[in-house]
């Protein structure tokens, strides 16, 4: 069969029309209607950061923080340490700060428990290795996670020098004592960690651990606002951060 130029152009025209109509039809199915905006009460910052005052911190305070955090985020509690999921927890001083190699460390500090959590690094190694962009650094500095997209490869766990990430080896649902209905759970095969309570910030609230520390042991705010409370604390006190030599630029500061 031979096609002359006139018929070829006709067929091409019909094909293009069908293609455009299909595209228009398909676009009606992709949620084009409506628009989106942030919550009216949302807190925003240029760079979220946290200052933890170790002088005020006790083991009970750390336990209280962890309790509030893990309750708010449906974090399962497993008895077996290998299955453990933790977003914020206590770590002995010499484990939290292995680079502080001074002999004869100040006595109370040397035996101190230090609350540790995701450092929301400026240069997060977990983000670099994630093959699906399930974890990424937000404009405001929060190292976020999209649990929908996590494939459970655990590269991020290997990459994180702070042990801030946990893997759900088992279905977490049965190990959650009381499910908070305002927050989802995770499934087996997904990595999870602290997200600086992005869901609470979106409602204009402070992170759960900050709220749980009534003595002002943890202060949370905008590092790039020169008048913020975190900046005042950093200007007034000597602070240290965890493993700064690795170049990850952690954004949790500790007053010692």
């Amino acid at each position: 069969m031979s096609v002359d130029r006139r018929n070829f152009i006709k067929m091409a025209g019909v094909g293009a029309a069908i293609g455009l109509a299909t595209k228009a039809g398909a676009s009606t199915l992709t949620g084009k209607s409506g628009s989106y905006k942030p919550d009216y009460a949302a807190s925003t910052a240029h760079r979220w950061a946290m200052v933890i005052d170790l002088r005020k911190m006790s083991e009970e305070t750390i336990a209280g923080c962890a309790e509030a955090c893990h309750k708010a985020h449906n974090v399962p509690r497993w008895d077996n340490a290998k299955d453990e999921i933790k977003w914020i927890w206590g770590e002995p001083y010499h484990n939290a700060f292995p680079a502080q190699e001074n002999h004869h460390t100040k006595e109370d500090l040397a035996h101190k428990m230090v609350p540790v959590l995701c450092n929301h690094c400026d240069n997060p190694p977990c983000v670099r290795v994630c093959p699906t962009q399930a974890t990424w650094r937000r404009e405001d500095g929060i190292v976020m996670m999209d649990w929908h997209r996590c494939i459970g490869c655990r590269y991020c766990i290997t990459a994180c020098p702070y042990g801030s990430r946990s893997f759900n080896w088992r279905d977490p649902r049965p190990a959650i004592e009381e499910i908070d209905k305002t927050f989802p759970t995770r499934v087996r095969g997904v990595v999870e960690k602290c997200t600086f309570c992005n869901e609470r910030l979106a409602r204009g609230e402070q992170p759960a651990c900050v709220e749980a520390c009534e003595g002002g042991e943890i202060v949370f705010g905008d590092l790039e606002d020169p008048n913020s409370e975190v900046r005042n604390l950093l200007a007034e006190h000597f602070t240290i951060r965890r493993k700064t030599g690795l170049g990850t630029q952690p954004e949790i500061y500790y007053i010692v």
């Binding site: 209607s33 409506g34 628009s35 989106y36 905006k37 942030p38 919550d39 009216y40 949302a42 990424w136 937000r138 976020m144 999209d146 929908h148 992005n198 979106a202």
Partner: peptide, 10 residues
Amino acid sequence: VRNENRIYVS
């Protein structure tokens, strides 16, 4: 999750 929007305007 990704765009920090919480409100849908129909």
